[in-house]
Amino acid sequence: MNAITVQNPDEILTLLADVALRGKGFTTESLLDYVLEEGFTEPIFLNATGEDPTAFYKGQPNAWAVYQVREWKRVLTISGGPGQERRARITETP
């Protein structure tokens, strides 16, 4: 998939609702549910890059491998890729 950057909160939430992550490590049937559970209710930035055969967008495989979701000073990074264990990490920026 082509890399994307989205800076509209509604578009970000809509896109995340269509992402499912399977495979090794961090998995979820709805990336939106996970993002909301972690308190990212009004994300202002999403960057998605790479390609992962165990990531699905709208039911199709080979969605993005790396996701960065920002809400003000908090950043959620989900990284994975072919043959890698997917990880999720939340950090605070200064």
Rank of each mutant, 00 (worst) to 15 (best):
N2A: 15
N2H: 13
N2F: 11
N2Y: 14
A3I: 08
A3K: 14
A3D: 13
T5V: 12
T5Q: 15
V6W: 11
Q7M: 12
N8S: 13
N8L: 14
P9G: 11
D10E: 14
E11F: 12
I12C: 05
L16G: 02
L16Q: 03
A17T: 02
D18Q: 13
V19P: 00
V19G: 00
V19T: 01
A20M: 09
R22K: 15
R22W: 15
R22D: 14
R22M: 09
G23T: 07
K24G: 00
K24Y: 09
K24E: 13
G25Q: 12
G25H: 07
F26W: 06
F26K: 10
T27H: 08
T28M: 06
S30N: 13
L32V: 01
D33Q: 12
Y34E: 11
Y34I: 06
V35S: 01
V35C: 05
E37W: 04
E37M: 00
E38K: 02
G39M: 01
G39L: 00
T41H: 07
E42N: 14
P43H: 02
P43Y: 01
P43W: 04
I44H: 03
I44R: 10
I44M: 06
I44L: 11
I44V: 12
F45N: 03
F45Q: 01
L46W: 07
L46N: 10
N47E: 15
N47L: 06
N47V: 07
N47H: 10
A48E: 08
A48Q: 14
T49R: 14
T49K: 09
G50S: 04
G50A: 05
G50P: 02
E51C: 08
E51A: 08
D52N: 15
D52Q: 09
D52P: 01
P53N: 00
T54L: 02
A55P: 04
A55C: 07
F56V: 02
Y57G: 01
K58Y: 05
Q60I: 11
Q60F: 11
P61V: 03
P61W: 05
N62D: 08
N62F: 06
N62K: 07
W64E: 07
W64P: 01
A65Y: 00
A65E: 05
A65T: 02
A65N: 06
Y67F: 15
Y67S: 08
Q68I: 09
Q68R: 15
Q68Y: 04
V69G: 00
R70T: 10
R70E: 12
W72V: 12
W72H: 13
K73N: 15
R74P: 02
R74E: 11
V75F: 03
T77M: 10
T77L: 11
I78M: 08
I78S: 04
I78F: 10
I78K: 00
I78R: 00
S79P: 00
S79Y: 04
S79L: 06
S79K: 13
S79M: 06
S79R: 13
G80N: 04
G80W: 01
G80T: 03
P82Q: 12
P82C: 05
G83Q: 09
G83E: 04
Q84I: 12
Q84D: 08
E85A: 12
R86Q: 10
R87I: 09
R87S: 10
A88K: 13
A88N: 10
A88I: 10
R89F: 04
R89M: 13
I90M: 05
I90A: 04
T91I: 11
E92R: 12
E92G: 08
T93L: 09
P94M: 14
P94G: 10
P94Y: 10
P94T: 14
